[in-house]
């Protein structure tokens, strides 16, 4: 590896750039080899195999080592998904997709706004106990998501849950209301229902849990960006007579953007694929209205054992995520980083 890398550049000084590139290509592939090998076998091959599977009726019967190959069924699996012809109760592909997009979008907006706001709060000069608050606020990030989901489900329990108890103790006492026994996660009537856009009360329960879970890391990222702002810029802005809002808009925001935007995009995709809250808190209910693409894909494999349909579903998922990546990537220009 060392020999390849060290010498040839000096041999042909007449065409350094081409030589350099050829030499670099060889070295680069040596560095890339392990990752490419591993990814070819366990990432790209499964993706290709998945496309084949999606055109077959792959099921339990084809699982055994010497089982017969599945029958090719053409676009059947894709059509079944689009026509909602799946045994999962209340399956509605378009509704799930719309909900999933809204779920990710609404969460990320709240995460970023809260994260930045609290980072600014913690960045106030001469704030006492700053380090204490900072280390306390990182706590939600550390708790494994499966625990977060179960504990929040517990807190939304209609009779004994903390949420209803707090409501009883505050709003209930103030307005002399009868005890609240609202079943947040199973309340059957949707709050908003406009075509495929359906938001049940459970969505707001999930949102509360995920906001709790999500803003701290945004705050950490925003803090890092805030600390990189030279204080001279604020002094210069003040000399130009800028007010607090103008300083925020013209000094703080431009520094926050390059850090927050890629992280928000990352957060969007993480939230889009967030399995644990939907699966463990609401179980996808009521009536499958808080089901996400990931949880549906999981049910197709784990519960229905419809591997062919699951493969077709995952192909849809792949293209949806690819579209999201391309659109958001254009926003962040994450690829344009090799500044040679």
């Amino acid at each position: 590896m060392t020999a390849v890398a060290a010498s040839p550049g000096a041999i042909v000084p007449a065409r350094p750039s081409r030589w350099r590139r050829a030499r670099d290509t060889r070295t680069a592939y040596l560095f890339l080899l392990p990752a490419l090998l591993v990814m070819a076998i366990i990432t790209f091959y499964p993706l290709v195999f998945q496309v084949y599977m999606s055109f077959t009726d792959y099921g339990l019967k084809n699982l055994a080592t010497k089982a017969p190959a599945p029958d090719v069924v053409g676009f059947d699996n894709y059509l079944r998904i689009l026509n909602n012809d799946i045994v999962i109760p209340n399956f509605d592909f378009v509704r799930i997709l719309v909900f999933n997009l809204w779920w990710a979008f609404s969460n990320v907006v709240i995460h970023v706004v809260l994260g930045v706001a609290i980072a600014l709060l913690l960045n106030v000069p001469r704030l006492r106990f700053r380090r204490f608050w900072r280390s306390l606020y990182i706590l939600p990030v550390m708790v494994p998501p499966i625990i977060v989901a179960t504990v929040w489900r517990n807190m939304f329990d209609p009779q004994n849950g903390a949420v209803n108890q707090i409501l009883n103790g505050t709003v209930g006492v103030l307005f002399k209301l009868p005890p609240v026994t609202l079943d947040w996660l199973n309340y059957p009537n949707p709050i908003i229902a406009a075509g495929p856009f359906v938001l049940p009360l459970a969505y707001f329960g999930l949102l509360a849990a995920n906001v709790w879970l999500g803003w701290p890391l945004n705050s950490v990222v925003a803090t890092g960006a805030l600390q990189a702002i030279p204080s001279e810029l604020y002094e210069a802005a003040a000399m130009d007579g800028a007010g607090p809002w103008q300083k925020f808009k013209n000094v703080t925001l431009p520094f926050l953007r390059p850090a927050m935007l890629p992280f928000a995009i990352y957060g969007f995709v993480v939230t889009f694929n967030l399995f644990y809250l939907s699966y463990f808190m609401s179980g996808g209910g009521p009536f499958g209205q808080t089901e996400l693409l990931v949880t549906t894909a999981y049910r197709l494999v784990a519960e229905q054992k419809l591997y062919g349909v699951a493969a077709a579903f995952a192909v849809f998922q792949f293209f949806i995520l690819l579209a999201i990546t391309l659109i958001t990537n254009r926003l962040a220009k994450a690829t344009a980083s090799f500044n040679a």
């Binding site: 590139r21 990814m39 993706l47 998945q50 792959y58 399995f275 894909a297 494999v301 699951a310």
Partner: peptide, 28 residues
């Protein structure tokens, strides 16, 4: 490094970057 095939490979990795583990669960 600047090398031949860099762009296609990066796009390949970007394409699967956002895939959750669940998305390849059936073929795996």
């Amino acid at each position: 490094m600047s090398f031949r095939g860099r762009e296609p490979l990066m796009i390949g990795i970007l394409a699967v970057l956002m895939l959750p583990a669940v998305a390849t669960i059936a073929p795996l």
